[in-house]
Write a protein that binds this DNA or RNA. Structure first.
Lengths: 193, 193
DNA sequence: CCTACCGATCGGTAGG
DNA sequence: CCTACCGATCGGTAGG
């Protein structure tokens, strides 16, 4: 059941789609207006600037990632389960907001200096949550004694690349199976010992 | 020993740096000229258009990736060694051309339609080379019977994310150690069995 | 939500 | 490699 979008919501969803396709800078307010079916000047009765759209997209995604990871943490005791649940939650946030996620990963560079530094510090905070869980797993003898930085980097690269190739309905596997494939590779590797 | 850059080479290296920082669309020919120390109009005695710069960056990187992977293949017999060498070669291409690599991964979207379809088909061809090696490893009982698509996806996401965080001189590990960490995670996973 | 419009900046060319 | 300049387009505002 599709709930009718308000004009403001429509501005965000159409922006996300265009920003994803063309990039933030190459998307004009006129092309946005055209897609919506109004004049460019009319957009400004709903939002204050082009940058505000980008801002709202980036920080609402950040909120979604934090909310998802917090829930995954409280719902799990065992470290491996916890990390798996965190990864699952992260991937779900991406595939449920695929255009916004692409903008989030691509276009945060175009935020104002102030917003950008807030953004990068939120991201560092988020990564730290994962890093703590990995380090907890190492202490408990569940995870190998690997360089934490590279484990985190590999983890996020795998998770975050999802937006590049995931296409709802096109990928044969559903989200659950997809997550299980990815975590399996990350947890156990591809080589038979 | 630094070899003096020709003006044309300088245009490419400064462009790569600016495209990486600001993105292709948000980089003006005037800011490029300013960085070089000439007038914007003077750039056009060395190159024909802004898009040609992007084109050359993207396709010279594609050439470098193909050359690297071909060498890795002929120099190795054993499948696991071969894949490891391919990954190493891939990462070296990235870290030796870090700005160009960032442009390659980010800004190919802004190529003309014609160049873009050539680009994506080259990329598919490249990925197929990896996929064949993975499938060879599965047949030989060296690699697990995992979904090949996800193995390739995880592999490239790990490799290609490198440009995001690698900073020459800043990352504590050298390239060789870095590659060994990443392949170790990908081959054997992070969990102790 | 529209018409009418602003100053700024864009990629690029002509001609030297 | 520069000066001088072009038409097009940009984000955004005033006023209704």
């Amino acid at each position: 059941m599709q709930v009718a979008e308000t004009r403001k919501e429509q501005i965000y969803s159409v922006s996300s789609k265009l920003f994803r396709e063309k990039g933030y800078s190459a998307t004009s307010m006129r092309s946005l207006a055209e897609q919506i079916g109004i004049e460019a000047a009319s957009i400004y009765s709903h939002i204050s600037s082009k940058e505000q759209i980008l801002n709202d997209i980036c920080f609402s995604m950040a909120d979604a990632f934090f909310a998802a990871v917090r829930q995954a943490i409280v719902e799990n005791e065992n470290v491996a389960d916890k990390l798996r649940a965190m990864m699952t939650a992260h991937i779900y946030v991406i595939i449920n907001n695929i255009d916004k996620a692409a903008v989030f990963f691509h276009d945060w560079r175009h935020l104002s200096e102030e917003a950008k530094s807030k953004f990068t510090s939120l991201r560092a905070e988020y990564e730290y949550i994962y890093r703590k869980v990995i380090s907890e797993g190492k202490e408990q003898g569940i995870f190998k004694q690997l360089n934490e930085k590279f484990v985190t980097l590999t983890l996020f690269s795998t998770l975050n690349w999802t937006y590049e190739w995931y296409k709802p309905g096109i990928t044969q596997l559903n989200a659950e199976e997809m997550v299980s494939e990815l975590t399996n590779i990350f947890f156990n590797g591809i080589v038979i010992n």
